[in-house]
Design a protein around this nucleic acid. Structure first.
Length: 580
RNA sequence: GCACCGGUAGCUCAGCUGGAUAGAGCACCAGACUACGAAUCUGGGGGUCAGGGGUUCGAAUCCUCUCCGGUGCGCCA
């Protein structure tokens, strides 16, 4: 239950009351009325802009409207004071029982505290990673994987039904290159001295694939022409690469619900079906594209091409569907793939792309709009690049893959929890600096430990409380006499707990899991502050063996904090620590 | 040339989708462990929100122009 939404309901009721009394004209647009925490806590617990937002349509002065509205709000038992301030804000101070109830609600709901029904069971497909099956995942993929996974978890927590999906690009020229590279490693495994020519994949990670091919086929492939061995080797190598990728994702704690094969699209006729749909809508034509201004490719020559009229849906130019040799461009199967997602009946599609695919956004949105008759929204989240550092120096080389740092390199060095949390501390569309040294140091430069420490501290208190003879199960703590929580610092912390459901909804509504990470930092900070107050004011110490009732109440508050932290870390995919 | 993303404290970044005096961490300065876990806390200095113009009760947030950085721009995915 989102307390802010609840109080907003109270404001709206009060406004309706004023309409009924003739104090306000009917048909006001109440969508603009908001209830938010004021920036300055000194102003109260919540503030509403209702008077200012409605002043003009109601043809009243903002402050006059506020003066009329405030007493109606103050009449509610949850509201202690309602004061008009500034240009027409109404600042609300809520009864402390409201905050105590939030603590109790957290204990009763446990891991489900903060869950929202906002998604209302609607179905969303989150496609992420989707790296080419030609090698191990690198750091860039890692960020996309972490983001997509956390976004999926967040939406699920907010009441969506979520599918995590990976599109396997196993149909293009790049997997033929993979097959040729693997074939050379195969010859190498058969005892031949090989050199990997430019244009093929040189990484050592293909050596085991070559050896496995050697084991499976013996000398059978040695004297065959390429067209004979290529399909088998390709399938073999792609499977091996996908196994490796799945293992990499597993290290990160990412599990996909579905891997969707591009190659399968060719066999099922789905590409033709999708393009037929576009053709029937008059969105396919043959035309000649203008060369890009300012940077004309040297071998540019005007050429008639089969084009998708993406300009009809806001793209800058129409996009080619066929190469000059008659093959599909990569765009054509991608259209078909999204057509399939639409046909599967999702209410929302989300694609997580690397920022280098930013130029692809408009055409993909155009395709989905056209194929779904603008019924299926597509949101595309771009993930900016990760810059790796070690002791402040740029860090590029990998022991394993040579030219790039792999996901496995990162996980082995800093572990999944730190990797995930650090990568989720940034907005997806801002570049991210990742310093290996800081991440491994486990110092205060490392925000993960700050949050985990708070969680571990609560666990420690619960252990001490139990030793002192206090029942520390959530159910028992929920029954404690919470009216013993009266100190402003305690109530301030309870307010943080009460904010969690709202934070979930806001993060989910904007598809921004990083907000969860920032909020957890906030909660941890408020908790640590209260804890340290106990040094100067012994009455605030949580565990006091000579005061079982008070200890139970304070433990209830502490446990509510750890409930929120555990729930938030659960969304981020980070382990909440019991001890450190 | 065009498109997309970014520009907020010395550094790294938030800023609740238009609200009140713009925040946090790091760094720097001064403090708090015989005390429930000091991986913590308290206090302090530090800003032309890249710049100009506009929209309105009110702009870091929306519109527009300029500057700077990143990414992309038919037959790579």
């Amino acid at each position: 239950m989102n307390l802010f939404a609840e109080i907003r309901g109270l404001v709206l009721d009060a406004l309706s009351g004023m309409v009924a009394d003739g104090a306000l004209p009917p048909d006001l647009d109440i969508a603009v009325v908001s209830v938010e925490p004021p920036r300055d806590p000194g102003h109260g617990d919540m503030a509403t802009n209702a008077a200012m937002a409605l002043a003009k349509p109601a043809r009243m002065a903002p402050r006059a409207l506020a003066e009329a509205l405030a007493p109606r709000l103050a009449a509610d038992h949850r509201v202690e004071t309602a004061e008009v301030a500034g240009p027409g804000f109404i600042n609300l101070r809520l009864a402390s029982s409201v905050w105590r109830n939030a603590v109790r609600a957290a204990l009763e709901a446990g891991p489900l505290f903060g869950r929202s029904e906002m998604g209302a069971g609607r179905r969303v497909n989150v496609e992420f990673v989707s790296a080419n099956p030609t090698g191990p995942l690198h750091v860039g993929h890692t960020r996309g994987a972490v983001f997509g996974d956390a976004l999926a978890a967040l939406l699920r927590f907010a009441g969506w039904e979520v599918t995590r999906e990976y599109y396997v690009n196993d149909g293009g020229a790049q997997v033929d290159v993979l097959a040729r590279s693997a074939y050379l490693r195969y010859r190498e495994a058969r005892g031949e001295a090989v050199e990997i020519p430019a244009g093929l994949y040189p990484g050592d990670y293909l050596k085991p694939v070559g050896e496995a091919l050697s084991e499976q086929f013996g000398d059978d492939l040695m004297d065959l022409p390429e067209e004979s061995w290529l399909p088998d080797v390709r399938e073999f190598a792609v499977e091996r690469m996908m196994d490796a990728i799945r293992a990499d994702l597993d290290l990160l704690g990412v599990r996909m619900d579905r891997f969707f094969s591009e190659r399968a699209l060719y066999d099922t006729g789905l590409i033709e079906a999708a393009l037929k749909r576009l053709d029937e809508a008059g969105l396919i034509h043959v035309g000649v594209l203008e060369p890009p201004k300012g940077k004309t490719p040297e071998d540019w020559e005007p050429r008639p091409q089969t084009l998708f009229r993406s300009t009809a849906y806001g793209d800058d130019i129409d996009r080619p569907l066929k190469k000059s040799d008659g093959q599909w461009t990569y765009f054509a199967p991608d259209i078909a793939y999204h057509f399939d997602k639409i046909e599967r009946g999702y209410d929302l599609l989300i694609d997580v792309f690397g920022a280098d695919h930013g130029g692809y956004v408009k055409r993909m949105k155009a395709a989905v709009a056209a194929l779904s008759a603008e019924r299926t929204p597509l949101d595309i989240k771009l993930i900016q690049l990760v810059r790796l550092f070690k002791d402040g120096e740029p860090y590029k080389m990998s022991k394993r893959a040579g030219s790039f740092v792999t996901l496995r390199d990162v996980i082995e060095e800093v572990g999944p929890d730190v990797t995930r949390f650090v990568m989720l501390m940034r907005k997806n569309d801002a570049p991210l600096d990742f310093d290996f040294r800081k991440a491994t140091e486990q110092s205060k430069d490392n925000p993960v430990f700050y949050v985990q420490y708070a969680h571990a501290r609560v666990a420690s208190m619960l252990r001490l409380g139990a030793e002192a003879g206090v029942a520390t199960e959530d159910r028992a703590l929920a029954a404690a006499d919470l009216s013993l929580l009266a100190h402003p610092a305690q109530l301030a912390l309870a307010k943080k707990v009460a904010e969690w459901p709202r934070q979930v909804e806001q993060a989910a509504a904007s598809f921004e899991p990083h907000r969860v990470a920032f909020f957890l930092n906030d909660v941890a900070s408020a908790f640590h502050a209260l804890y340290n107050l106990g040094r100067d004011e012994p009455a605030l110490r949580v565990v006091q063996p000579d005061d079982p009732a008070g200890t139970a109440a304070r433990l209830a508050l502490a446990r509510a904090v750890s409930v929120v932290i555990a729930a938030g870390l659960g969304i981020l995919g980070v382990t909440p620590a019991e001890q450190m």
